Amino acid sequence: MSRIGGPREEPCSAGATGDPPYRDKATALRALHVPGKPLVLPNVWDAASARLAVAAGFPAVATSSFATAAILGYDDGEAAPVGEVLAGAARVARAVHVPVTIDFERGYRLDPAELVERFAATGAVGLNLEDSDPSTGQLVEATEHAEFLAAVRAAATSLGVDLVINARIDAFLRRAGSPGEQLAAAIARGTQYLDAGADCVYPIGQADPAVVRAMVEAIPGPVNVGYGRQSDLSLADFAVLGVSRVSFGPTLQQHLYGKLGAALFAAVAADRDPFQVER
């Protein structure tokens, strides 16, 4: 994987969002969404994990809302104060030179213009916006969410901000009808969200190869899938299916913290010094 971007920049303010570095990062992020050669995003949660991802060679950095909420001491589902989430996004964007995209749930109830202005000030150039209500877990009507996406895109255009919008589709996650109805809803919603101004769509919660292929073939734009532990599909398999983006969500953080917790509990149970480095 090649790295992209130049020297690290400070987060841009709303008045500086038209500066070339910001536009270049958004353009670079959008260009990485290639069917059959997917952008792989090992979702991070802070500046340190973001730097690890970049050092490993990943060309862009994404966050996970679940993982970010965990380090802030809150549950997922927009429970964390939006100011803290935005501050965390700014720290990640400031820490790395590659494009940064943020899992922004459903926008934390911000008006589209305020959302764009405050989000752009972090220096991140992409964001996820999901189509279910974090407080209830219920799917939002497709037209309502499409109108929200269109309003965010219009606000970005008005403010001179180039945002890469990844529209998450929760039809599978929320089990909206039979499997066939979920697939039909994902395709219909994906098409509608792209028409509304999204750059990519993310039907989360589905890794069946036949279903993924059906979505890729029917949705007229880049498709993001989640790399889940319940799936036997490899990154190469997703590439063959024509996927444009692969996300890991909170999986890496959960794996890392699980290892840490197991080591600490084992040390205490064995009456050992948990901080003694084994040689």
Rank of each mutant, 00 (worst) to 15 (best):
T27H: 10
L127M: 14
A120F: 04
D76K: 08
D162T: 12
F119D: 07
G205K: 12
I165Q: 02
E278F: 06
V216E: 07
E181A: 13
A47I: 04
A26M: 06
G221T: 10
A269S: 15
A270R: 15
P179A: 06
E141I: 07
A56W: 01
A262N: 07
G249Q: 11
R118H: 12
A186Q: 10
G88N: 15
R174H: 08
P274E: 03
R174I: 04
R174G: 05
L260F: 15
H255W: 09
E181F: 03
E10Y: 06
T101V: 13
G57L: 02
A93R: 07
L194T: 08
I219V: 15
H255A: 13
A28F: 01
L52A: 14
P220C: 04
V201P: 02
V116E: 08
E114C: 04
G180W: 00
L110H: 09
F248Y: 15
S13K: 14
R91Q: 12
A124R: 06
G123T: 12
P179Q: 04
D103W: 12
S2T: 14
A218F: 05
V223D: 05
A56K: 03
E114P: 05
I4M: 05
P112L: 04
G228F: 10
G83N: 13
A121G: 06
G261S: 11
A269L: 08
V225P: 11
G18W: 09
L233W: 09
P81V: 05
V116K: 08
H33R: 08
P7H: 07
N166P: 06
A176G: 03
N166R: 00
A198K: 06
Y202T: 08
Y108Q: 07
V61S: 01
A267W: 03
I187N: 05
R175C: 09
T191Q: 14
M1F: 04
G73W: 06
N224T: 11
G5W: 00
Q276F: 01
F66C: 13
A155N: 09
R51A: 10
C200S: 09
H145E: 09
I204N: 07
D195H: 13
A79W: 11
L32P: 03
P11G: 02
V211Y: 02
V277I: 13
G57I: 03
T122H: 11
A176H: 14
D76Y: 03
A151Q: 11
Q138K: 14
R91F: 00
L139D: 07
